[in-house]
Simulated assay, not measured.
Amino acid sequence: MQLPPEEESRLTINIVPMIDVVFAVLAFFILSTLYLTRDEGLPVNLPTATTSESQEASLTLTITAEGDLFLGQQPVVLEALYDEVQALVPPGQSTMVTVRADAATPHGQVVAAMDRIRTIDGVRLGIATQQP
């Protein structure tokens, strides 16, 4: 019995699975870096302060120069501010609320918003400024 001659099989490297893995890792890093940015609220011209310190804020209240209020990115009216913040504060935990008021915002508007938030248990207030 005579066996047929064996063909020499060419060794090949299949790189398609490696490309799939590289693209999966690349997609992971791209998506994960999107969540590394802090939620700063809406763009406003912050007042300057030489003694400002960096703090971690879990909620951001932005007050524009016109006096409009935004909790995060959502608009809110002054009368509903207490209920909106209360709904976002976990019970029994301390939450930092940073007030980002434009430099041209009337002082009374900032005080009125802070007064509403101050009555919520477990809420600490901070005022956002920028270094000169």
Rank of each mutant, 00 (worst) to 15 (best):
T37H: 11
P17Q: 06
L46M: 02
V22N: 00
I120K: 02
L61I: 08
A128S: 09
G67M: 00
E56Q: 14
G67C: 02
P47G: 04
N14K: 13
M96D: 01
H107C: 09
T64I: 02
L81Q: 02
V110R: 06
F28T: 03
G72M: 02
T37D: 10
L59Q: 08
Q55M: 13
G122Y: 03
L81M: 04
T12N: 10
E8V: 15
T98L: 12
N14W: 11
P132Q: 10
V16G: 09
T62L: 01
I13C: 09
L31E: 08
I127E: 07
N14G: 09
T62G: 03
T98S: 12
L71T: 03
A103H: 01
V16M: 12
V111Q: 12
L88H: 02
V21G: 04
S32D: 11
A24Q: 00
G41H: 04
G122I: 04
H107N: 12
L31I: 15
R100P: 03
Q130N: 05
E56Y: 14
T50D: 14
D20Q: 14
N14P: 03
L31M: 14
Q74V: 09
L36G: 08
T64G: 00
R116I: 08
Q130C: 04
T129H: 08
V21W: 04
R100L: 04
T33M: 14
L46G: 02
P91C: 05
E53D: 09
P106K: 03
A104H: 07
E8S: 12
E79H: 13
I117W: 00
V16E: 12
H107F: 14
Q2H: 09
V22H: 02
P43K: 07
M114W: 01
M96G: 01
V16L: 14
Q2G: 07
E6G: 09
P75V: 09
V25K: 01
V16T: 15
Q86W: 06
L78S: 06
V21L: 09
M1L: 10
T51S: 13
V76A: 07
P4I: 11
E7N: 12
L71A: 03
R124H: 12
Y35S: 12
M96E: 05
R118P: 05
G67Q: 00
I13S: 09
A112F: 03
S52D: 08
V77I: 14
T50N: 14
Q131Y: 10
E8K: 15
V85G: 01
T95K: 03
F70P: 01
D102G: 00
E79Y: 11
I127N: 05
P106S: 07
P106H: 03
D83I: 05
E6I: 12
V22I: 11
S52P: 00
P106E: 07
T119F: 08
A112D: 06
L81H: 02
P17S: 07
L71D: 01
G126L: 06
A103L: 03
H107L: 14
A104E: 11
A128T: 02
Q131N: 12
A103N: 01
T12Y: 15
T37Y: 10
T48R: 13
T50E: 15
V44W: 04
A103V: 07
A80Q: 15
V89D: 01
Q131E: 13
E79P: 10
F29S: 07
A104D: 11
E6H: 11
A101L: 04
L125I: 11
L34H: 10
N14A: 12
Q74I: 07
A112M: 06
L88Q: 08
S54Y: 09
T33R: 14
A112Q: 06
P106T: 06
L34G: 13
T37R: 13
